[in-house]
Amino acid sequence: MSDTAVRDVSTREQTPAPAGPGPVVLTVHADGRERRLYWAVADCWNVVRRGLTHYQRQPINIVWQLGFPILSVLLYAYVFGGAMKSPGGDYRDYLMPGMFVMTMAFGFMGTAMTVVADSTKGVIDRFRSMPMAPSAVVSGRGVTDILVAVAELAILAVTAVLIGWRSDGGFFGTLGAFGLLVLLRFSLIWIGVWLGLIVPNAEAAGGLYAVAFPLTMVSSIFVPTSSMPDWLGTVAAWNPISSTAGATRELFGNPVASDGSWIQENAVLMAVAWPLVLTAIFLPLAVRRFQKLSR
């Protein structure tokens, strides 16, 4: 008979098994904090695997999430691009960093829709009834969306190169720009989770596009804020999305349009500060909302 190993993570030291045939019991000693951390990570990974499995079994979701950015690039670059004025050089060089930002910004809608679907179908209720770390549902959703965001950026970057866009910022500048894009997506995940936990159904969640659309349009994604009326240009300049768009253009070495205002002259600084502020606000709100539903 082969030996069977049974693991108990309640203690830290290993206890030798008694001599003779029979199952081998391995006791691994760990204090309460280490045990909670272990299960929080393990449960988070299980939620991530569940989310990625859904993409594997429902490929239409991949086609939509990854295909929409590509269609947007082709639409704005070739349909509207000829009528747009770039601050310098080809309009595609000005457009592409903005398209990267728009893709990351719209991602929070996918997060909200997924959380709403899990909530209305009883999946979250099922999670609450299971012996799993409460943080795993929120953190697992976040990790899954970051992985999807990286895939979206990779495919969008390849598309951009194929239509003629180039990054002239060097290796570290390019890496830093993509890092800021992922940071923005990370901060918006928690807004999506929070919204997904407070809206009652999928129909109401669909109405959130009425918020997401102006959020991306009133920014410097497509045109410089200086081309807008003064009051609207000020609002657009202080939009967190505009800061990330300006910072990525600067790091990519692409054309940058600045009106000389403080917020635009410090775009890289604000592209870091805005996501940190949003995360500090909405991550606790999302966790608190989930804990409230769990009571």
Rank of each mutant, 00 (worst) to 15 (best):
S2P: 06
S2G: 00
D3H: 01
R7A: 01
D8M: 03
S10T: 05
S10Q: 12
T15V: 08
E34I: 12
V47S: 05
V47D: 03
G51Q: 10
G51W: 12
Y55R: 11
I62P: 02
I62G: 06
W64R: 10
Q65I: 10
Q65T: 10
S72M: 12
S72C: 10
S72T: 13
L75H: 00
L75R: 00
S86D: 05
D90K: 12
Y91M: 05
Y91F: 13
L95W: 12
G98Y: 09
G98F: 11
M102S: 00
T103D: 06
M113I: 07
T114N: 08
V115P: 08
V116A: 05
D118T: 03
T120I: 01
S129T: 08
M132Y: 09
V137P: 01
R141D: 00
V143Y: 08
T144H: 11
A149G: 08
L153A: 09
L153G: 03
L156Y: 09
A157D: 11
V158E: 03
T159V: 12
T159H: 07
V161M: 10
I163G: 00
W165A: 00
D168I: 05
D168R: 13
G173M: 15
T174C: 11
L175A: 14
V182N: 03
I189V: 07
I189T: 06
G192V: 15
L195C: 02
G196Q: 00
N201S: 09
A204V: 15
Y209S: 10
V211C: 04
A212N: 06
M217G: 02
I221W: 07
V223G: 14
V223P: 12
T225N: 14
T225I: 02
M228P: 14
P229H: 12
G233L: 08
T234P: 11
A236H: 03
S242D: 07
A247F: 13
V256M: 10
V256Q: 15
I263E: 11
E265S: 15
L269N: 06
M270R: 01
M270W: 08
V272Y: 14
V277I: 04
V277E: 07
A286L: 03
A286G: 04
S294T: 01
